[in-house]
Protein backbone atom coordinates (compact mmCIF):
# COMPACT_ATOMS: atom_id res chain seq x y z
CA UNK A 1 0.00 0.00 0.00
CA UNK A 2 2.83 2.32 0.96
CA UNK A 3 4.49 1.63 -2.38
CA UNK A 4 1.31 2.37 -4.25
CA UNK A 5 0.77 5.67 -2.44
CA UNK A 6 4.36 6.75 -2.99
CA UNK A 7 3.84 6.47 -6.74
CA UNK A 8 2.71 9.87 -8.03
CA UNK A 9 0.82 8.30 -10.94
CA UNK A 10 -1.20 6.18 -8.56
CA UNK A 11 -2.08 9.24 -6.50
CA UNK A 12 -3.09 11.09 -9.67
CA UNK A 13 -5.39 8.23 -10.71
CA UNK A 14 -7.09 8.19 -7.30
CA UNK A 15 -7.46 11.97 -7.14
CA UNK A 16 -8.48 12.57 -10.76
CA UNK A 17 -12.23 11.74 -10.47
CA UNK A 18 -12.62 14.13 -7.53
CA UNK A 19 -10.59 16.83 -9.26
CA UNK A 20 -12.71 16.52 -12.40
CA UNK A 21 -15.95 16.55 -10.42
CA UNK A 22 -14.82 19.52 -8.30
CA UNK A 23 -13.73 21.40 -11.42
CA UNK A 24 -17.07 20.75 -13.10
CA UNK A 25 -19.31 21.78 -10.22
CA UNK A 26 -17.19 24.46 -8.52
CA UNK A 27 -14.35 25.87 -10.59
CA UNK A 28 -16.10 26.15 -13.97
CA UNK A 29 -19.26 27.79 -12.49
CA UNK A 30 -17.04 30.34 -10.70
CA UNK A 31 -15.31 31.27 -13.95
CA UNK A 32 -18.64 31.29 -15.79
CA UNK A 33 -20.16 33.60 -13.18
CA UNK A 34 -17.15 35.88 -13.47
CA UNK A 35 -17.63 35.95 -17.25
CA UNK A 36 -21.35 36.80 -16.91
CA UNK A 37 -20.52 39.48 -14.38
CA UNK A 38 -18.56 41.33 -17.05
CA UNK A 39 -21.49 41.38 -19.49
CA UNK A 40 -24.35 43.80 -19.94
CA UNK A 41 -27.84 42.73 -18.85
CA UNK A 42 -29.96 40.81 -21.30
CA UNK A 43 -33.46 39.69 -20.37
CA UNK A 44 -33.04 36.49 -22.36
CA UNK A 45 -31.30 33.15 -22.29
CA UNK A 46 -28.06 32.28 -20.58
CA UNK A 47 -25.43 32.15 -23.27
CA UNK A 48 -27.09 34.68 -25.57
CA UNK A 49 -24.76 37.21 -27.11
CA UNK A 50 -24.14 40.27 -25.04
CA UNK A 51 -21.52 42.96 -24.87
CA UNK A 52 -18.65 43.33 -22.43
CA UNK A 53 -19.09 46.13 -19.95
CA UNK A 54 -16.05 44.95 -17.96
CA UNK A 55 -16.29 46.08 -14.34
CA UNK A 56 -19.39 48.24 -14.70
CA UNK A 57 -21.52 45.85 -12.60
CA UNK A 58 -18.90 45.90 -9.85
CA UNK A 59 -18.81 49.70 -9.87
CA UNK A 60 -22.62 49.79 -9.78
CA UNK A 61 -22.59 47.53 -6.71
CA UNK A 62 -20.74 50.13 -4.69
CA UNK A 63 -22.12 53.30 -6.25
CA UNK A 64 -24.03 55.18 -3.55
CA UNK A 65 -27.73 55.34 -4.20
CA UNK A 66 -30.82 55.61 -2.04
CA UNK A 67 -32.00 52.14 -2.98
CA UNK A 68 -28.63 50.47 -3.51
CA UNK A 69 -28.60 48.06 -0.60
CA UNK A 70 -25.44 46.15 -1.44
CA UNK A 71 -22.82 48.16 0.52
CA UNK A 72 -25.14 48.01 3.52
CA UNK A 73 -25.57 44.26 2.98
CA UNK A 74 -21.78 43.77 3.00
CA UNK A 75 -21.52 45.77 6.22
CA UNK A 76 -24.29 43.68 7.75
CA UNK A 77 -22.48 40.46 6.84
CA UNK A 78 -19.28 41.85 8.39
CA UNK A 79 -21.22 42.64 11.57
CA UNK A 80 -22.49 39.09 11.63
CA UNK A 81 -18.97 37.78 10.99
CA UNK A 82 -17.70 39.88 13.90
CA UNK A 83 -20.43 38.49 16.15
CA UNK A 84 -19.52 34.97 15.08
CA UNK A 85 -15.83 35.51 15.77
CA UNK A 86 -16.08 37.52 18.96
CA UNK A 87 -19.21 36.03 20.54
CA UNK A 88 -20.01 32.63 19.07
CA UNK A 89 -16.50 31.18 18.93
CA UNK A 90 -15.35 32.32 22.42
CA UNK A 91 -18.60 30.98 23.87
CA UNK A 92 -18.12 27.69 22.01
CA UNK A 93 -14.54 27.52 23.26
CA UNK A 94 -15.66 28.11 26.83
CA UNK A 95 -18.22 25.32 26.57
CA UNK A 96 -15.67 22.99 24.95
CA UNK A 97 -13.14 23.71 27.72
CA UNK A 98 -15.71 23.00 30.41
CA UNK A 99 -16.87 19.83 28.66
CA UNK A 100 -13.34 18.56 28.16
CA UNK A 101 -12.67 18.64 31.89
CA UNK A 102 -14.76 15.50 32.12
CA UNK A 103 -17.74 16.91 33.97
CA UNK A 104 -20.62 14.65 34.89
CA UNK A 105 -22.92 14.01 31.90
CA UNK A 106 -20.21 15.08 29.44
CA UNK A 107 -21.55 13.05 26.51
CA UNK A 108 -25.14 14.12 27.16
CA UNK A 109 -24.18 17.80 27.09
CA UNK A 110 -22.11 17.22 23.95
CA UNK A 111 -25.08 15.62 22.20
CA UNK A 112 -27.51 18.28 23.37
CA UNK A 113 -25.25 21.07 22.08
CA UNK A 114 -25.03 19.28 18.75
CA UNK A 115 -28.80 18.77 18.25
CA UNK A 116 -29.42 22.20 16.59
CA UNK A 117 -26.69 21.43 14.05
CA UNK A 118 -28.46 18.34 12.75
CA UNK A 119 -31.83 20.09 12.51
CA UNK A 120 -32.55 21.66 9.12
CA UNK A 121 -32.14 25.43 8.96
CA UNK A 122 -35.71 25.69 7.73
CA UNK A 123 -36.99 23.97 10.87
CA UNK A 124 -34.76 26.16 13.04
CA UNK A 125 -36.07 29.27 11.28
CA UNK A 126 -39.70 28.27 11.73
CA UNK A 127 -39.00 27.48 15.37
CA UNK A 128 -37.48 30.91 15.95
CA UNK A 129 -40.26 32.55 13.97
CA UNK A 130 -42.71 31.24 16.56
CA UNK A 131 -40.38 32.36 19.36
CA UNK A 132 -40.28 35.93 17.98
CA UNK A 133 -43.93 36.08 17.08
CA UNK A 134 -45.53 34.30 20.03
CA UNK A 135 -43.22 33.58 22.93
CA UNK A 136 -41.21 36.82 23.13
CA UNK A 137 -44.29 39.08 22.78
CA UNK A 138 -46.00 37.04 25.51
CA UNK A 139 -43.00 37.53 27.83
CA UNK A 140 -42.86 41.26 27.00
CA UNK A 141 -46.58 41.47 27.68
CA UNK A 142 -46.14 39.74 31.02
CA UNK A 143 -43.35 42.12 31.99
CA UNK A 144 -45.33 45.06 30.63
CA UNK A 145 -42.56 46.10 28.24
CA UNK A 146 -43.40 47.64 24.87
CA UNK A 147 -42.42 45.53 21.86
CA UNK A 148 -40.32 47.16 19.13
CA UNK A 149 -42.50 48.81 16.46
CA UNK A 150 -43.71 46.25 13.87
CA UNK A 151 -42.30 43.35 15.96
CA UNK A 152 -38.78 41.95 16.11
CA UNK A 153 -38.72 40.58 12.57
CA UNK A 154 -39.89 43.75 10.82
CA UNK A 155 -38.33 46.49 12.91
CA UNK A 156 -35.32 47.86 11.07
CA UNK A 157 -33.31 48.11 14.28
CA UNK A 158 -33.96 44.58 15.50
CA UNK A 159 -34.60 42.36 12.49
CA UNK A 160 -31.01 41.57 11.56
CA UNK A 161 -30.09 40.78 15.14
CA UNK A 162 -33.20 38.61 15.28
CA UNK A 163 -31.77 36.66 12.34
CA UNK A 164 -28.23 36.48 13.71
CA UNK A 165 -29.28 34.98 17.06
CA UNK A 166 -30.74 31.69 15.70
CA UNK A 167 -27.67 31.23 13.49
CA UNK A 168 -25.23 31.93 16.27
CA UNK A 169 -27.17 29.56 18.51
CA UNK A 170 -27.47 26.84 15.88
CA UNK A 171 -23.76 26.55 15.13
CA UNK A 172 -22.41 26.85 18.67
CA UNK A 173 -22.73 23.06 18.98
CA UNK A 174 -20.79 22.53 15.78
CA UNK A 175 -17.83 24.57 16.97
CA UNK A 176 -18.05 23.05 20.45
CA UNK A 177 -17.72 19.59 18.96
CA UNK A 178 -14.72 20.53 16.80
CA UNK A 179 -12.95 22.26 19.68
CA UNK A 180 -13.88 19.53 22.13
CA UNK A 181 -12.38 16.91 19.80
CA UNK A 182 -9.18 18.92 19.51
CA UNK A 183 -9.00 19.44 23.28
CA UNK A 184 -9.47 15.75 23.90
CA UNK A 185 -6.62 14.97 21.54
CA UNK A 186 -4.12 16.91 23.67
CA UNK A 187 -1.84 14.29 25.27
CA UNK A 188 -2.98 13.63 28.84
CA UNK A 189 0.60 13.77 30.14
CA UNK A 190 0.76 17.47 29.24
CA UNK A 191 -2.38 18.17 31.26
CA UNK A 192 -1.15 15.99 34.11
CA UNK A 193 2.23 17.73 34.16
CA UNK A 194 0.56 21.12 34.30
CA UNK A 195 -1.74 19.93 37.10
CA UNK A 196 1.23 18.62 39.08
CA UNK A 197 2.90 22.01 38.56
CA UNK A 198 -0.17 23.61 40.12
CA UNK A 199 -1.53 25.35 37.04
CA UNK A 200 -5.04 26.70 37.62
CA UNK A 201 -7.78 25.82 35.14
CA UNK A 202 -7.84 29.29 33.47
CA UNK A 203 -4.04 29.31 33.19
CA UNK A 204 -4.00 25.82 31.77
CA UNK A 205 -6.64 26.85 29.22
CA UNK A 206 -4.87 30.05 28.19
CA UNK A 207 -1.30 28.79 28.13
CA UNK A 208 -1.58 25.14 27.20
CA UNK A 209 -4.92 24.05 25.79
CA UNK A 210 -5.79 27.01 23.55
CA UNK A 211 -2.28 27.29 22.03
CA UNK A 212 -2.30 23.57 21.34
CA UNK A 213 -5.65 23.60 19.51
CA UNK A 214 -4.88 26.64 17.37
CA UNK A 215 -5.07 24.68 14.10
CA UNK A 216 -8.62 23.70 15.01
CA UNK A 217 -9.43 27.27 16.04
CA UNK A 218 -8.30 28.34 12.60
CA UNK A 219 -10.67 25.82 11.02
CA UNK A 220 -13.52 27.10 13.20
CA UNK A 221 -12.68 30.70 12.30
CA UNK A 222 -12.67 29.87 8.59
CA UNK A 223 -16.01 28.06 8.77
CA UNK A 224 -17.49 30.82 10.84
CA UNK A 225 -16.36 33.66 8.56
CA UNK A 226 -17.30 31.94 5.32
CA UNK A 227 -20.67 30.93 6.79
CA UNK A 228 -21.29 34.56 7.77
CA UNK A 229 -20.66 35.88 4.27
CA UNK A 230 -22.88 33.23 2.69
CA UNK A 231 -25.74 33.44 5.20
CA UNK A 232 -29.00 32.91 3.30
CA UNK A 233 -31.54 30.33 4.48
CA UNK A 234 -32.49 31.65 7.91
CA UNK A 235 -32.94 35.30 6.89
CA UNK A 236 -34.78 34.20 3.73
CA UNK A 237 -37.39 32.48 5.88
CA UNK A 238 -37.48 34.88 8.82
CA UNK A 239 -37.46 38.24 7.06
CA UNK A 240 -39.94 39.82 4.70
CA UNK A 241 -39.97 38.80 1.08
CA UNK A 242 -37.33 40.30 -1.23
CA UNK A 243 -35.18 41.51 1.68
CA UNK A 244 -31.74 42.46 0.36
CA UNK A 245 -29.95 43.25 3.61
CA UNK A 246 -27.37 40.48 3.31
CA UNK A 247 -25.16 39.81 0.27
CA UNK A 248 -26.55 36.34 -0.53
CA UNK A 249 -30.15 37.61 -0.23
CA UNK A 250 -29.36 40.54 -2.46
CA UNK A 251 -27.78 38.24 -5.06
CA UNK A 252 -30.83 35.96 -5.04
CA UNK A 253 -33.34 38.80 -5.39
CA UNK A 254 -31.33 40.44 -8.19
CA UNK A 255 -31.13 37.12 -10.02
CA UNK A 256 -34.57 35.61 -9.59
CA UNK A 257 -36.86 38.55 -8.89
CA UNK A 258 -35.19 41.35 -10.82
CA UNK A 259 -33.71 39.24 -13.64
CA UNK A 260 -30.42 41.11 -13.40
CA UNK A 261 -28.29 38.09 -14.21
CA UNK A 262 -25.03 39.93 -14.82
CA UNK A 263 -25.41 42.17 -11.80
CA UNK A 264 -26.30 39.16 -9.63
CA UNK A 265 -23.25 37.32 -11.01
CA UNK A 266 -21.08 40.26 -9.99
CA UNK A 267 -22.52 40.06 -6.47
CA UNK A 268 -21.89 36.31 -6.43
CA UNK A 269 -18.29 36.93 -7.46
CA UNK A 270 -17.92 39.51 -4.72
CA UNK A 271 -19.02 36.90 -2.16
CA UNK A 272 -16.52 34.39 -3.61
CA UNK A 273 -13.67 36.96 -3.51
CA UNK A 274 -14.67 38.03 -0.01
CA UNK A 275 -14.54 34.42 1.25
CA UNK A 276 -11.22 33.82 -0.53
CA UNK A 277 -9.71 37.03 0.83
CA UNK A 278 -10.66 36.23 4.40
CA UNK A 279 -9.45 32.64 4.09
CA UNK A 280 -6.09 33.91 2.82
CA UNK A 281 -5.97 36.46 5.61
CA UNK A 282 -6.55 33.71 8.18
CA UNK A 283 -3.86 31.59 6.56
CA UNK A 284 -1.50 34.53 6.76
CA UNK A 285 -2.29 35.24 10.40
CA UNK A 286 -1.90 31.61 11.44
CA UNK A 287 0.94 30.81 9.01
CA UNK A 288 4.04 31.07 11.12
CA UNK A 289 2.40 30.94 14.47
CA UNK A 290 1.28 27.35 14.01
CA UNK A 291 4.88 26.21 13.80
CA UNK A 292 5.99 28.49 16.61
CA UNK A 293 3.19 27.41 18.92
CA UNK A 294 3.68 23.71 18.32
CA UNK A 295 7.42 24.16 18.94
CA UNK A 296 6.56 26.09 22.12
CA UNK A 297 4.18 23.30 23.16
CA UNK A 298 6.87 20.68 22.58
CA UNK A 299 9.37 22.72 24.63
CA UNK A 300 6.85 22.99 27.47
CA UNK A 301 6.30 19.25 27.25
CA UNK A 302 10.06 18.61 27.41
CA UNK A 303 10.39 20.95 30.40
Amino acid sequence: MKRVLSNKWSIAVFVLPTVLFFTYIVIIPIFKSFYYSLLSEIPAKVGDASEFVWFENYIKMFTPGRRNDFPGAVLNSLTYAALSVFVQLPFSLLLALILSTGIKGESTYRNVFFIPVVISSVVISLLWQRIYKDLVPAIYDLLNIALPKNGFLANKDTKLMAVYIPNLWQFVGYHVLLMYGALKSIPTDVIEAATVDGASAPRMALQIQIPMIKPMLKVCLSFSLIGSFKLFDTPWILLERANKQLPALSMYVEMFSNHKYSYASAQAMFIVFECLAFTMLLNFIFRDREGIESRKGRRRLAA
Binding site: P43, R67, K149, N150, A154, N155, K156, E240, R241, A242, V253, E254, S257, N258, H259, K260
Partner: peptide, 17 residues
Amino acid sequence: GEDATLIGDTVYDVLTG
Protein backbone atom coordinates in the same frame (compact mmCIF):
# COMPACT_ATOMS: atom_id res chain seq x y z
CA GLY B 1 -38.43 42.50 -12.82
CA GLU B 2 -36.85 45.03 -10.53
CA ASP B 3 -39.76 47.46 -10.99
CA ALA B 4 -42.10 44.82 -9.54
CA THR B 5 -39.65 44.20 -6.68
CA LEU B 6 -39.39 47.95 -6.11
CA ILE B 7 -43.13 48.51 -5.75
CA GLY B 8 -43.23 45.67 -3.21
CA ASP B 9 -40.21 46.97 -1.31
CA THR B 10 -41.34 50.58 -1.22
CA VAL B 11 -44.88 49.80 -0.08
CA TYR B 12 -43.31 47.63 2.64
CA ASP B 13 -41.12 50.58 3.63
CA VAL B 14 -44.19 52.80 3.95
CA LEU B 15 -45.84 50.10 6.05
CA THR B 16 -42.88 49.93 8.43
CA GLY B 17 -42.60 53.73 8.50
